[in-house]
Amino acid sequence: MRTALVIGTGLIGTSAALALAGRGVTVHLRDHDPASARTAAALGAGTDTEPEGPVDLAIVAVPPAHTAAALAAAMRASAARGYLDVASVKGGPQRQLEAMGLDLTAYIGTHPMSGKERSGPLAAGADLFEGRPWVLTPTRTTDTEVLNLALELVAVCGAVPVVMDADAHDRAVALVSHTPQLVSSMVAARLEEAEESAVRLCGQGIRDVTRIAASDPRMWIEILSANPGPVADVLAGVAADLDETVRALRSLQSADEEKRRDGATGVEDVLRRGNAGRARVPGKHGTAPAAYETVVVLIGDRPGELARIFADAGRAGINVEDVRIEHATGRQAGLVQLMVEPAAAPALAAALRDRGWSLRTG
């Protein structure tokens, strides 16, 4: 691939453009808002000038509601040898293109499973897709050359290609992406009118659950409007679990011992099923999640503290597999949770104590 046209210079489009430009591909940037394309160009994502002729690959990175129209316009203008989109839903745009009577041999649907709470070109980065799945949904007629162009883009972006059927993809993202967004927002909405004394008790659990609730509602309305059925199906299952759990909790309030036992059983059931589901979430490098040991360190809110911890762990020959930070409300301090292989935990704890760190039981 030597030339590309990115249509839509938001987070995803600009990030892909940055990765391509970093590999020497000549990238042309186009957006309905010229200022956005100029900003992306200023960041080094390419040029906001129009290409003189067809490019190798056109990447359509616009909201799902506009994806098919943008693809159709580019295809009718013979803008490229191959066309792909990065919309978060795949079945709808594909059916729209088919209904328009377009030749889809030069088209492939794709969806990089990566993003941020922030949007726009200023939030973009060439490393946004590193190690993340990038779904490819070829049609029955997609040309091999176009598939290869898509695979080249995925490789340049450092992502992992996953081939799926378009409708199977939409059902999958309803479960692993779209429903979590709504559930996170619903939990966060409980905080809006909460007493200040309750909000001040917020710990890492509520921060984890509500992190993605900070996402742009306008963007999510567009996404959910393009995939409402599968999301509603998943939410119906969640609602059934909620109803059962509410009944079980009410039973725990009963004076009747048998009802309390039934209530405890009902709550335990949903917790255990949650354990089983969580165990299926891929861990590091896409493998089954490992059982890491956690070493918890008290850290001051000062420049360089995190770097010191990692340097001390490195000097001890310990590889930190994962890390989390829990901030202390109202204090210039926090707790850093260092996840390591179980056999390495005692050595890491001893090394950090020797270097003056204060450890907490994790």
Score class of each variant (00 low, 15 high):
G229D: 10
V163F: 05
E305Q: 14
D301Y: 01
R2G: 14
A232S: 15
G205A: 02
A79T: 08
R250E: 14
A72D: 10
G263A: 06
A42Y: 03
A19C: 01
H111K: 03
L97N: 14
T265N: 08
P112A: 00
I223V: 10
I59R: 05
V89H: 07
A226G: 08
T26W: 06
T67R: 12
V297L: 05
G8K: 03
L348V: 08
L191W: 13
A198S: 10
V199H: 06
L359N: 10
T3C: 01
S197V: 14
K284L: 09
R247K: 15
L147I: 09
K284Q: 11
A333D: 09
A73Y: 07
A80T: 10
A172D: 04
G10M: 01
M75H: 09
T14R: 00
S254I: 11
D322Q: 11
G237N: 03
D354E: 15
A40S: 07
A79E: 06
N275L: 15
A126Q: 06
L201R: 03
R190N: 10
G109N: 09
R353H: 11
Q332P: 09
L20E: 01
T9F: 01
R273I: 03
A172V: 09
L20M: 08
R308K: 15
P133I: 00
S254A: 15
N275E: 15
M1K: 02
R273M: 02
V238Y: 12
L153P: 12
L298V: 14
P34F: 02
A350G: 06
R261A: 08
E326F: 03
F129Y: 05
N227Q: 08
V270M: 04
V6R: 01
H32A: 14
R353A: 14
V296P: 00
